[in-house]
Computed example of a mutant assay.
Amino acid sequence: MSHHDERTFVMVKPDGVQRGLVGEIIGRLEERGLKLAAAKFMQIDQDLAEQHYGEHEDKPFFDELVAFITSGPVMAMVWEGADATRQVRQMMGTTDPKEAQPGTIRGDLGLDLGQNVIHGSDHEDEGANEREIELFFDEDELVDYERADEPWVYEDA
């Protein structure tokens, strides 16, 4: 991992997979200059879902979150780049797609709060990235490489 890179966890949720948006979302992240470090197309089981949403365990919508994220396959990924977590959050748009700006992933591709296409680690939650990456990926599944366009993405590459 180069010195200006941060890793962040991103997931295309079951609705995004069912609607055929995986390629569109990966394309947007690549076009921004972010680098794919790991990807896993998978079905999340109950146990993993409960761990993933652990911070919401006491909230009334917890069971709905778990039911939704286990309702179909997801594309779990790790992306790298300068300030990657904040960059991805900005690209995703606000949690409620009806309020998300046009041009953002949710603003362009989503309409419903419960089915908002994508999950990304929270840049304001210290350690969210590490926790989520470790939950979905073993260390040896993270690929470290240099992308050929890095000198054209970063001034100091």
Score class of each variant (00 low, 15 high):
His3Glu: 11
His3Val: 06
His3Ser: 15
His3Arg: 15
His4Met: 09
His4Asp: 13
His4Ala: 12
Asp5Ser: 04
Glu6His: 14
Arg7Leu: 15
Arg7Ser: 04
Arg7Asn: 15
Thr8Asp: 12
Thr8Leu: 04
Thr8Gly: 01
Thr8Gln: 05
Phe9Ser: 00
Phe9Asp: 00
Phe9Ala: 02
Val10Cys: 10
Val10Ala: 07
Val10Trp: 13
Met11Leu: 06
Met11Arg: 00
Val12Tyr: 03
Val12Lys: 14
Lys13His: 14
Pro14Gln: 09
Pro14Asn: 08
Asp15Ile: 09
Asp15Asn: 05
Asp15Arg: 06
Asp15Ser: 06
Gly16Val: 07
Gly16Leu: 11
Gly16Cys: 12
Gly16Phe: 08
Gly16Asn: 11
Val17Trp: 01
Val17Phe: 04
Gln18Pro: 00
Gln18Ser: 14
Gln18Gly: 10
Gln18Asn: 06
Gln18Asp: 04
Arg19Thr: 05
Arg19Lys: 15
Arg19Gln: 14
Arg19Ser: 04
Arg19His: 02
Gly20Ala: 08
Gly20Ile: 13
Gly20Met: 10
Leu21Thr: 08
Leu21Tyr: 03
Val22His: 03
Val22Lys: 11
Val22Arg: 07
Val22Thr: 15
Gly23Asn: 13
Gly23Thr: 03
Gly23Ile: 03
Glu24Thr: 09
Glu24Ala: 02
Ile25Asp: 04
Ile25Ala: 09
Ile26Ala: 10
Ile26Arg: 11
Ile26Met: 14
Ile26Asp: 02
Gly27Ser: 15
Arg28Glu: 07
Arg28Ala: 01
Arg28Lys: 00
Arg28Ser: 08
Leu29Ile: 06
Leu29Trp: 00
Leu29Thr: 02
Glu30Pro: 09
Glu30His: 14
Glu30Tyr: 05
Glu31Met: 10
Glu31Arg: 14
Arg32Cys: 01
Gly33Cys: 13
Gly33Thr: 07
Gly33Trp: 03
Gly33Val: 00
Leu34His: 02
Leu34Thr: 09
Leu34Ile: 12
Lys35Asp: 03
Lys35Met: 14
Lys35Trp: 06
Lys35Arg: 15
Leu36Met: 14
Leu36His: 05
Ala37Tyr: 12
